[in-house]
């Protein structure tokens, strides 16, 4: 089932909240995301039973959440993108649609600072529990030490014009 039919069925269901961006990608607005996700998974025509990846991208004005969906039965793919406001990124969790979203969202939350409303286990996944700041944001300044352990090592092969921190 190629991309145009997918967009047609989505538009039939959700009207203008779903717009077609690049080939294979659809842009949806954050409020609707849970309903769209449930629809994609349960509709027999679309049958997107697998969420391949949920990634966050930090753009200057907005944080984009990108969902890569795949249907093992129908063998077709779809990318759904939503833009969130950068200073207060909030989106409802997709955990009860795809269970794998649980860990993807925890990782996206701690690395990009996105708040997933209704998430069952909002602890930090990869970073230590008392880590400050969101590392994957563009304006993130890495701390030089953590609990007294310094991050930078003297670069023995220093260049005269100021050695970049290795």
């Amino acid at each position: 089932m190629n991309f145009e039919d997918i967009v047609k069925t989505l538009k039939a269901e959700f009207g203008e909240t779903v717009k077609e961006a690049a080939p294979g990608t659809v842009v949806a607005d954050p409020g609707e995301i849970e309903k769209i996700a449930l629809f994609c998974r349960d509709n027999p025509l679309l049958d997107f039973k697998a969420l391949i990846a949920l990634s966050g991208v930090d753009h200057p004005g907005r944080i984009e959440i990108v969902l890569h969906l795949a249907s093992y039965g129908k063998k077709h793919f779809l990318v759904i993108k939503t833009a969130l406001d950068r200073n207060k990124p909030e989106i409802s969790t997709l955990e009860n649609v795809w269970k794998t979203a649980n860990w993807h969202e925890r990782e996206c939350a701690e690395l990009l600072g996105v708040l997933f409303k209704g998430h069952s286990d909002p602890r930090k996944l990869l970073l230590p529990d008392d880590w400050l700041g969101y590392p994957l944001r563009k304006d993130y300044v890495p701390p030089t030490e953590y609990h007294g352990i310094s991050h930078s090592r003297h670069n023995p092969v220093e260049k005269k014009r100021g050695a970049p921190p290795s």
Partner: peptide, 18 residues
């Protein structure tokens, strides 16, 4: 600008708890 890496073990690890 951004590279997101999706790996197999990440999701395999998430199923162990359940």
């Amino acid at each position: 600008y951004r590279v997101k890496i999706r790996t197999g073990s990440f999701t395999a690890m998430s199923i162990i708890e359940s």
